[in-house]
């Protein structure tokens, strides 16, 4: 039987959740026995080449590209997992959600300490190659259906590992206190 296929991505995240995946240490050898990877920064595959079993999503959606990628994942993965605070609730990037997007852009490009004097032509990034910023940061489940959620900032390596193994083997997920405590 062929191995289950995993895809991962980081949307509006800091890659901390992916670092946490790598934090499984030597179990990475077991991991490659257990699953294959498709689209993921781990193997640098840019586009889906096959239907995947599990998609791990880090980060919420702050721009139009995030939305496209997330929808692509939903289309190509049987199970989608929101990994970490940003994917689940928007996280740190969502701090801007109470501020109108116009004010955010103004502060970032026209009025910030590092841009105020450095941008005399008052240019705002508007090249059509660039993704467009959304009005606020959305958690993934407000865009597509998410099947499971792994909390933490980042979720502990053990939690991600236990969850992956449970999904692949069909065994019950082990959730001892140590893997879901956050301090």
């Amino acid at each position: 039987m062929s191995k289950p296929i995993v895809a991962t991505t980081s949307l509006a995240g800091c890659f901390g959740c992916h670092m946490s995946i790598l934090d499984i240490d030597e179990r990475i050898l077991q991991l490659i026995e257990l699953v294959d990877f498709n689209k993921s920064p781990v193997d640098d595959i840019k586009e889906f080449t096959t239907m995947c079993d599990i998609g791990l999503i880090e980060g919420g959606c702050c721009n139009s590209e995030n939305v496209h990628v997330l929808k692509d994942f939903r289309k190509n993965c049987k199970i989608l997992v929101s990994v970490g605070e940003c994917a689940i609730m928007g996280g740190l990037p969502a701090l801007r959600n109470n501020i109108p997007i116009e004010e955010c852009l103004h502060e970032a490009y026209l009025n910030g300490p590092s841009t105020k004097d450095a941008n005399p032509d008052k240019i705002l990034p508007n090249n059509e190659e660039l993704p467009i910023i959304l009005d606020k940061v959305y958690p993934c489940h407000e865009i597509v259906k998410i099947d499971y959620y792994l909390p933490g900032c980042p979720p502990r390596a053990d939690l991600i590992w236990n969850a992956l193994v449970a999904l692949v083997t069909g065994d019950e997920l082990k959730l001892p206190y140590e893997v879901v405590k956050f301090d």
Binding site: I101, E102, L105, L124, P125, I132, I133, L134, D135
Partner: peptide
């Protein structure tokens, strides 16, 4: 989720 609506304000602001 309405992507067009979500990008409306920032698109207008940056032109």
């Amino acid at each position: 989720f309405d992507l067009n609506k979500a990008i409306q304000n920032s698109s207008r602001y940056v032109g």
